[in-house]
Each structure stands twice: as structure tokens, then as C-alpha cells.
Amino acid sequence: MISDRLKKIICDELYLDPSTIEINDQTEAPQVPGWDSLNHANIIVAIEKDYGVRFKGLEVLKCNNVGALQKLVDSKLSN
């Protein structure tokens, strides 16, 4: 399940109000206003900074929705 922390990072980066945006496990980037290919890199960097982790490009490539991104964060934190 998506943590409030991850949702907040994404919304902050896109200047969205988390209370007005639905983001769940199945949400894909194109469904979120402002989340395009240019902003994608900024969102990933913001997640890395906030959690203090580093992703490899190929790991991010495998994340086809926000749920998969959350799992990637969790796996980094448990290492």
C-alpha cells in the first residue's frame, strides 16, 4: 500500500494538494496531473533524497505503477 510519505513527496514535487488527488498502488504516472517524462526524473530524485536511497535507472524502469515504486523504496530501506 502507498504510504502517505510517498504520496506527499509526489504531490509536493508536482504542486498538488494530496487531499484532492487519488494515488494508489495501481496509479500510473500518466494518470497524475503534471507527471510527465521531464518531471519523472525530478520525482525520482525527490524520493531518493527524502528516503536517503539511490535507485538505478533499470530498477525504476521496471516500476509500472506507484505500488511498484513503493515496493522499490521498501526494498532499499530494508537492505
Partner: peptide
């Protein structure tokens, strides 16, 4: 599409 997500490619 893959490059945008993984520029290392």
C-alpha cells in the same frame, strides 16, 4: 520510452 525512465541505457 525506456530511455526516459532509464537514461543510462
Amino acid at each position: 520510452f525506456e530511455w526516459v525512465l532509464a537514461p543510462i541505457l
